[in-house]
Design a protein around this nucleic acid. Sequence first.
DNA 1: TGTACATCAGTGAACGCGCGTTCACTGATGTAC
DNA 2: TGTACATCAGTGAACGCGCGTTCACTGATGTAC
Lengths: 198, 198
Amino acid sequence: MLAEIKDVALRQLAEGGPQALSVSAIAKQLGVSGPALYRYYAGRDALLTELILDAYADLTTALTAAEPDLASTVAAFRAWATAQPHRYRLLFAAPLPGYDAHDDRLVAASLGAMVLLLTRVDAASPEPSPTLAGELAAWAQSRGLAETPPAVALNAITLWSRLHGLISLEIEGNFAAMGIDAGELFAREVRSIGSPAH
Amino acid sequence: MLAEIKDVALRQLAEGGPQALSVSAIAKQLGVSGPALYRYYAGRDALLTELILDAYADLTTALTAAEPDLASTVAAFRAWATAQPHRYRLLFAAPLPGYDAHDDRLVAASLGAMVLLLTRVDAASPEPSPTLAGELAAWAQSRGLAETPPAVALNAITLWSRLHGLISLEIEGNFAAMGIDAGELFAREVRSIGSPAH
DNA sequence: TGTACATCAGTGAACGCGCGTTCACTGATGTAC
DNA sequence: TGTACATCAGTGAACGCGCGTTCACTGATGTAC
């Protein structure tokens, strides 16, 4: 039943966007009265938190299942995002109106998925400035990646940023509207990160 | 009065996010009854469309005012976005719930701003594949940029995508959360586009 | 095998809320003669 | 200068809607003796 509720919730998220996610609507679709759901979730926010945690876990699984090279991992990342854009938005776009995420599990979950992606980057970027290198070192250390050289961390973050740009534009249909197939764009960005001279 | 309504609308957008933009709330803040606004705007969607058009126009102005080199234009783009993230989201993130934009002026306005940014790119990317080159040529032509070589168009789109990734992450506070100053990241992306070997 | 009880999923009514929008109207301001 | 009228910004009540959440409850199922 818990799973059934999440299923319907995700379907509504996919079809009607974030604002379509409502306790009453889910209940109606399940053929059940609204208050019935309160037996399973403390409320709308709790359900939402659960959906986000699931999405992080699912993304992590997808990345883990990919071949451990950079290109395959990035391809898996993109495939996951484009197959279910609503879940990608749930993780990386602006949160829903009135939803306040102050759940420690969220921080931990996001770490798992991102670290996995970032540690597949091994090429180093052109040397960052001393200031940026310091910031990067501090960040890597706080993430349990103390061994990572700043130039590699920078490369990883750059990759992440470039991917996010491509994916969010692709998800909203911008490349489709331009008549451009995004596949080659992705391949190019991966190549740009894979070689130090980008 | 038209301007005053927009002012309040933008302030609410900035403070409470998109869902805070409501006719009644604007009216209340103006010390006026709800229906009074219908004398100035046909409804919520019309007001929203006006806000988007304004934002495009404002962004175009900001880009035009910048020095005509790539770095300055990108800096202006970023400055505009970070100074008023809510307006950037209005243009480039998911539209508001229930808002259907089928206004020809929107298409024209978005074109103005983007073409301005994209035409400041002159370096060419490594040669795109024949397929992609064809798509790029068709797109450039439909945008009145028939002279643009596909490799330059690709470079421009790559720049746009990279900027969008950086800006949307910066706007949502991701870099701040990592303790990283985003300025150098921007400078690097501009450099990567400015030189053909990225 | 039969009775008494506890558990607990789900119900329906109700709460207060804010939304966009319509409608008939008031009342001040400006214009024409 | 004074009167008759038109214009029109703004009002308040009302419409139907959906929301999250609470509350006391029903009624079926399972358990203990």
